Deep mutational scan, measured.
Amino acid sequence: MFYPNSPQTSPQLTQIPYGQQYAMMQRQIQQPYHPFATTEPQARLYPYHYQGPIQQEQGGFITQQSTAASPQYVQMRVTPVDQSIMSGYPNQTANGSSSSSFNYNIHPQQQQQQQQQQQQLRHHAMPVGSVPLQDDRYRKQLIVNYLAPDVTSTDLHELFSRFGELDGARIIYDKQTNMSKGYGFVYFCHAEDAKEAVERMSGYEFHGKWLKVGYSTNPLNIVPSNSSPYVHAGSRGAAG
C-alpha cells in the first residue's frame, strides 16, 4: 500500500523548493479562506456584503464582478436614472436638479381664491374633541361614552347635575331594538360647569363602566337656548 506522503511516492527534499517541504498533501497545500485577509477597505468593513468592485458596462447597466450573493443577503441591482424623465418638472436647472418651490404660472386672482378656499376649509374642519370658538353652545354640550346598558337618562342627569344647572341629558337608544347604544349627551347651562365635568368625570366608574367624557361637536345635538329642557323620564321611549 502506498500513501500520498510515503517515501516511495514523495520526491527528495532537495528537489522541493524551500517553504513547501512540509506541504505535501493536497489539504495542506490548499490555503484556508480568510474573509478579512484583503487589501480593499470595503471588504474589511463589510465582509458579507462586499463582492468586489463595481464596473460600468456598455448599455448603462451596473453589474458586479463577483458571483451571486448568499441567500441570506439580498443584493440590489441599481440602474442609472434617465434624465429625460425629470425634464417635465418646473424650475429645473441645466444640471438636472430642481428647486423646492414650484411655479405653475397661476393667475394671481386664482391663487388668492385657492388660498381663501383653504382658509375656509381649515375654519370649518374641526378635529374630534375640539371646541370651536365662534359658538358658545359647543362648550356646553358633552358626550358621555361607555355607558352601561342599564343607565337611563334620569341617572345621567343626576350624575352630572352636581356640577351645575343642566339644560338636559339623554341616552341614545336603538330604534329597532330599543336598547341603549352605550353613549349619551349632557347639556349644561354654563360653559364653566361643562369644563369642570369634563375634567372630573373622564375615567369615572359608573355602573361598572369607566366613562369617557368630552365635548360634543355635532351641531345636530345642540340644544337651542330658547327651547324647553328635555324630559328626564326613566322610560326608554321618552328618553330616546
Rank of each mutant, 00 (worst) to 15 (best):
F2S: 08
G182I: 12
S235A: 11
N5R: 06
I106T: 03
S216G: 05
A238V: 13
D174Q: 02
F102P: 09
Q51M: 05
A194K: 12
Q58W: 00
G168F: 12
A69I: 14
S101Y: 10
Q118K: 03
V198C: 02
M86I: 11
K195Q: 10
Q56W: 15
Q26W: 00
A125Q: 07
T14M: 13
I85T: 04
A43E: 03
V78T: 01
Q112M: 02
G168T: 01
S100K: 11
P132Y: 01
T9N: 10
I106K: 07
P149K: 00
G234Y: 01
T177Y: 10
L45E: 04
P80R: 11
S100M: 07
F206A: 11
R27L: 14
Y187Q: 05
A23S: 12
I222D: 03
Q116L: 03
R77Y: 12
Q56E: 04
S97N: 05
G52Q: 08
P108H: 00
A37S: 08
T38V: 00
W210K: 13
Y73F: 00
Y173N: 09
Q58A: 13
Y50H: 13
Q28W: 15
Q55T: 09
H124S: 11
D135P: 02
I29S: 03
F160V: 04
N221P: 14
G60W: 14
V223Q: 06
A94N: 01
A94R: 07
R137I: 09
Q83S: 06
S180I: 04
S6R: 06
V186P: 03
Y46W: 00
Y215T: 06
L156T: 12
K195T: 05
S84E: 12
F188K: 01
Y138P: 10
Q109H: 06
D167Q: 07
N226V: 04
F61W: 04
S66N: 12
N178W: 15
Q28A: 11
A23I: 10
S98Q: 15
T154P: 05
S180E: 08
Q134L: 06
Q26S: 05
S87R: 11
G208A: 03
I106R: 04
G164H: 09
H157W: 01
Q111P: 11
Q116I: 01
L45H: 02
P32G: 11
F206E: 09
G52P: 08
E199N: 08
Q113T: 04
N221Y: 08
S10G: 09
R44N: 04
S228D: 03
E165H: 07
P80A: 06
V131E: 15
N145I: 06
G129E: 07
Q65R: 05
P17Y: 13
G60I: 15
Q42H: 08
A69T: 09
K140Q: 00
D150K: 02
P17M: 02
R236K: 10
M76R: 09
I54S: 09
P80I: 13
V223S: 09
Y215D: 09
P32I: 13
M76E: 05
T79E: 15
V198N: 05
G88T: 08
D82I: 11
N105C: 12
A125Y: 11
V78G: 02
Q109M: 14
S153W: 05
R162C: 13
P127W: 15
F160T: 14
M24Q: 07
F163I: 03
S225R: 10
D150H: 12
I172P: 05
V128I: 11
L166P: 08
H49G: 14
A68T: 09
Q92F: 14
L211V: 06
V231N: 01
H34V: 14
Q134S: 14
A68C: 07
Q31E: 15
Y187H: 00
T67W: 10
T14F: 12
Q26A: 00
I143K: 05
R44P: 00
T39E: 00
K175A: 07
P80C: 06
S101F: 06
P47W: 05
P53K: 03
R170K: 00
P80M: 03
P149Y: 01
Q92R: 11
Q114V: 13
